[in-house]
Design a protein around this nucleic acid. Structure first.
Length: 153
DNA sequence: GCCAACGTTGGC
DNA sequence: GCCAACGTTGGC
């Protein structure tokens, strides 16, 4: 099993939004970055754990844990001219972009804010710190455990 | 709102 | 294939 961190702007889609869904699963679509796409398509597997991170707010933070419930499949929103992340280069034969489905597991009793991650000696290698723009990031088991502890789980 | 970092585009 | 110009992301 592997660990990941997914970023989302809460004004766009928050962990609370995910928890509210009656069916509790959500397609993680709209990712349009090749490195992130490769993780979605090739490496993220059903059962993997995901840290849900809120970005572009006053205090960015890890706020909850999700589980992957469906692994990489074509992101059909790229084919839809009406969709926000439409890509004219994508076709059904060559979809280019991929997504996975996730479901909320539990919120962290205490959010883990970015400044805390920045200063924690065991978390210095997280891409959040110097590759902050990567929206899908791998997390090591050790890092995941540290964040769980900081978050009160 | 600013700006640094980074990714993409397009001319050559 | 290089690189300058431009657009986007995201922290502050």
């Amino acid at each position: 099993m592997n660990y990941w961190l997914f970023k989302s702007e809460p004004s766009c889609f928050s962990f609370q939004d995910l928890q509210k869904r009656p069916q509790a699963t959500e397609p993680w679509d709209g990712v349009r970055n090749y490195q992130a796409r490769n993780f979605l398509r090739d490496q993220i597997k059903t059962g993997d754990k995901v840290l849900f991170y809120h970005s572009s707010i006053a205090v960015p933070a890890v706020v909850g844990v999700c589980t992957v419930v469906r692994e990489g499949y074509p992101d059909h929103t790229a084919l839809n001219p009406q969709a926000d992340h439409f890509d004219p280069k994508a076709t059904p034969e060559k979809p280019i972009w991929y997504m996975v489905d996730v479901k909320a597991e539990k919120p962290l009793p205490r959010e883990v804010p970015l400044p805390v991650i920045r200063e924690h000696p065991a978390l210095q290698k997280m891409p959040l710190i110097n590759r902050s723009r990567l929206s899908i990031q791998p997390v090591s088991e050790a890092e995941f455990k540290v964040i769980m502890e900081l978050g009160g789980l």
